[in-house]
Design a protein around this nucleic acid. Structure first.
Lengths: 264, 264
DNA sequence: GTTAATTGTTGACTAAGAGTCACAAAATCA
DNA sequence: TGATTTTGTGACTCTTAGTCAACAATTAAC
């Protein structure tokens, strides 16, 4: 206890410092601008010390990514309290994610980094597993929702398998994630999708995503269909209640500095 | 003429050699395994000579990517000869792309590389523009198709704007592109999506994509709906006629080494 | 045919950054 | 206080992108 655990605490504190600083650097300067030398200088420790915590640069990036992902997952936890049809829960999830992305528009850039082969190939297995587990959680939650909808008579699977449906919805979201960066402030496009999004004047990609998901669900005949339920009202409701804090910040009534919330 | 253009021809020949070799290296060893030193050694020229052709490593990668993309675009050109409803054309496009991806399962890995911020940020403007132009072409073709469908009374836009629809379809495809790699031979997963695809036993992601697009189009009420048209027959037809050559190779009746087709 | 000018090619060199490790400093223990 | 363990360090190696002065080959001039 006491002494050895104080050391331990200090070590954990420093690990958080490393992660938080890396997070800031990654968002500010991107993956290319993130070097261990700069990081070490910034936190005022030697390079070797950083490598006492992480086996390689990619592990730091992946750990930051996992923490950011964890934070993002909490958004989805909030909607579980809602007492609405299953399909409305799916939509509420997209509303929450849209708001969260508006708040924290650079986060998806981080998340995309983890999908890059060259990074993935160097990350240690533990961290890959951790990441895997979180993504799996989303899949599991989705699968339950699909099964519940079938059980409650709101959805028939037909030639679809349950997995096809949630795989599709998640893939749709992924495809859009490339263009979910808020267009509030003018930013240099970071990839081809962002370029096109600018040039094609897609003012609110999040709206298009919500529409795409909704259309897909209509195509599945997952009830209540968009014409039979006031999803606009649902959106307003979740925005004003369970995501009220997000909305306050977006509307400028509150200011927030987004940092990695490390409650390890 | 003659002399100076012979020089020029030699220069162009070497450029092709650089691109073809880079293509092979990128597919074989990924972005991380691709170094200019290795490339130079392989083509038996000095490093400096390579840099006479391209300003930086990323420019080589992007040029390879653009050429691969160009090749891929030709797949979509084939379906233009089909005399079927607009929606069937959209579906035929996905069938063709599925086949092409089965043939050339590593290509999408290349294409994803170009979407990575760290590469995009170093590529010269010319190559970005070239890439942009090709993606724009897909968008334009799609927009025409949507407009035609509306004109012919097969689709009403409703609260959608034309751009929402084609943006959505393209995003859906993009989301799936992460898992379109053929699962024919056992391969090490290259990113989280591929991991999940393996662990969740999605046997034929291309099928799921086709289903997702079809479901989305049903949701849009873009006629003929999937229940009113024999899309299975269409798939068989295009597979057996305009993509017969792809199919032959897939079924092992023909062997083909996929290389970059540089007809510059 | 010889020489000068131009053009093309080279690989040693610089710079930068990842990762290592022998040693130094600090903490702990006896 | 001195011995032992733990922790932190930054100079070092290694790899790789990109440069550039010098060398080679080709072309032009005389």
């Amino acid at each position: 206890m006491s002494i050895s655990s104080r050391k331990e605490r200090e070590f954990k504190e420093r690990e958080k410092l490393i992660l938080r600083t890396s997070y800031d650097m990654l968002l500010a300067e991107g993956y290319m601008g993130f070097t261990i030398d700069k990081l070490a200088k910034k936190i005022d420790y030697a390079k070797g010390t950083v490598y006492k915590h992480f086996a390689c640069k990619e592990d730091i990036v992946m750990k930051v990514l996992n923490e950011a992902f964890k934070q993002r997952l909490k958004v989805l936890d909030r909607i579980k309290t809602l007492n609405v049809p299953e399909r409305a829960l799916v939509m509420a999830g997209t509303y929450g994610m849209s708001l969260y992305n508006k708040l924290n528009p650079n986060l998806h850039r981080l998340i995309q980094i983890g999908n890059v082969e060259s990074i993935w190939s160097k990350v240690s297995q533990d961290l890959k597993d951790e990441h895997n587990l979180m993504v799996t959680k989303i899949f599991d939650d989705f699968e339950l929702l699909v099964q519940l909808a079938v059980k409650n008579g709101n959805l028939e699977l037909g030639e679809h398998e349950s997995i096809d449906i949630y795989f599709s919805i998640i893939c749709i979201s992924m495809g859009f994630s490339g263009l979910l960066r808020s267009t509030r402030d003018e930013q240099i496009p970071h990839n081809i999708i962002e370029c096109l999004c600018n040039s094609r004047l897609v003012k609110d990609p999040a709206r298009v995503l919500r529409l795409a998901v909704s259309t897909f669900l209509d195509g599945l005949n997952w009830r209540p269909l968009s014409k039979d339920y006031d999803y606009k009202a649902l959106e307003k409701e979740v925005t004003d209640t369970i995501f009220a804090d997000f909305n306050d910040i977006i509307n400028g009534n509150k200011q927030v500095e987004f940092i990695l919330d490390l409650d390890i």
